[in-house]
Design a protein around this nucleic acid. Structure first.
Lengths: 204, 204
DNA sequence: GATGTTTATGAACACTGTTTATTTTTTTAA
DNA sequence: TTAAAAAAATAAACAGTGTTCATAAACATC
């Protein structure tokens, strides 16, 4: 036969095309500007066709979120390679912030938007990418706690402490809220704050 | 005369009506569900009339944001009254988180949405409410730094450190991202993390 | 009562996500 | 090769969205 294989390949190819178009529009016009009708126009199909390949808009957002995590990993590789756990945490923080500031729309999709999360709920799935990231941070925190003998520190609480801190910084910067702290100096302000956080936690 | 005064009063009254309707819809249907057409239907005017009282949707969002800060202040009064600066910071953190978790739509409008901020930009205004809140936090940080003689701590960096941490926690909780850390236990997780942050910073 | 000024609106424009009945294309079987 | 079955694509509709503008109604003043 071979026809079923070809059919499957063609179906997968159009699905890829849809996602590629979606990514293009996301980068050009942001999350607000991304619409099913624009995707359809880009791939030269009717809007209804999209629904043969994706359940709804949220399903597209979910797959874009997965792409975002792959992009983020590229920002992370050098940080992950750091030997010393404390310095690894510091580098992960820097890379996370760097990624967030340079890729607002991806970041929003991954860590703020409820649309990919709604899809996860609908399909009763898990947020695998987020869990993988958090678990790696937990392991590094455990290493750091052991090395510095930080008594009374729980690695999961510490990981959440770190995550929420950088997440908060990125969000405040992205939504222009940092302007009230110091005008036009986000990068330095954020770097200083991250350093201060690290010093508080690890006393170095 | 007196007619001009009455006219002005009537104009202000309809503006109030619009905002009251907007608030009602915001609470019932969230930010996504709030539309000019729904406001118009609620006050029994045509949608076009809204534009005689507000420049655009962002202007309505901006005034709602101001209402949000008044609501938040009611969560803060007892924290502000705390004598000891360190305990005051802790209480401010708790109240901030409490407000954020109980009032997702208000919080989003005040600290995440770009719509009120766009209005501020358009009108070349300042984010007065945010500045007031941040400056009060800075003053309390200064007090705490002086009292505990924390050398090398800058009060503005410390204030930003605290703000971004609780902001991050609230956002992660609101967008369901905390579920990967521990299921159905947000409140305790957040309380633990806040306590851990306070201990790191003030060693108490 | 006529004039000028507010105030209000209907209708249009250009969009949005999604569904359904219908048509077109492709594949399979006789 | 042709007819039937299956798959893929779509047009059109539904119910919304923010915003603008010409027109109409209401009102204050002379």
């Amino acid at each position: 036969m071979g026809t079923t294989e070809r059919k499957e390949r063609e179906k997968a190819e159009l699905k890829e095309q849809i996602l590629t178009a979606a990514k293009k529009i996301l980068l050009r016009e942001g999350q607000e500007g991304l619409s099913i009708r624009k995707i359809a126009a880009d791939i030269e199909y009717s809007p209804a066709t999209i629904y043969l390949y994706f359940k709804d808009r949220d399903a597209i957002m979910y797959e874009l979120m997965e792409m975002g995590f792959m992009l983020m990993n590229r920002y992370m590789v050098s940080a992950f390679a750091e030997q010393d756990p404390v310095r690894r945490i510091h580098e992960i923080g820097r890379s996370y912030i760097h990624f967030g500031l340079e890729n607002k729309d991806w970041y929003d999709l991954m860590f703020n938007s409820d649309k990919p999360m709604k899809h996860i709920e609908k399909c009763m799935e898990d947020w695998d990418e987020g869990m993988a990231m958090f678990n790696f941070l937990c392991m590094t925190c455990k290493e750091a706690i052991d090395k510095l003998q930080l008594k009374g520190q729980n690695e999961r609480i510490l990981a959440l402490h770190l995550w929420s801190s950088v997440h908060g910084l990125v969000n405040l910067a992205q939504t222009e809220r940092l302007e009230i702290v110091e005008r036009h100096n986000n990068a330095s302000l954020i770097a200083q704050t991250l350093d201060s956080m690290m010093q508080c936690i690890f006393k170095i």
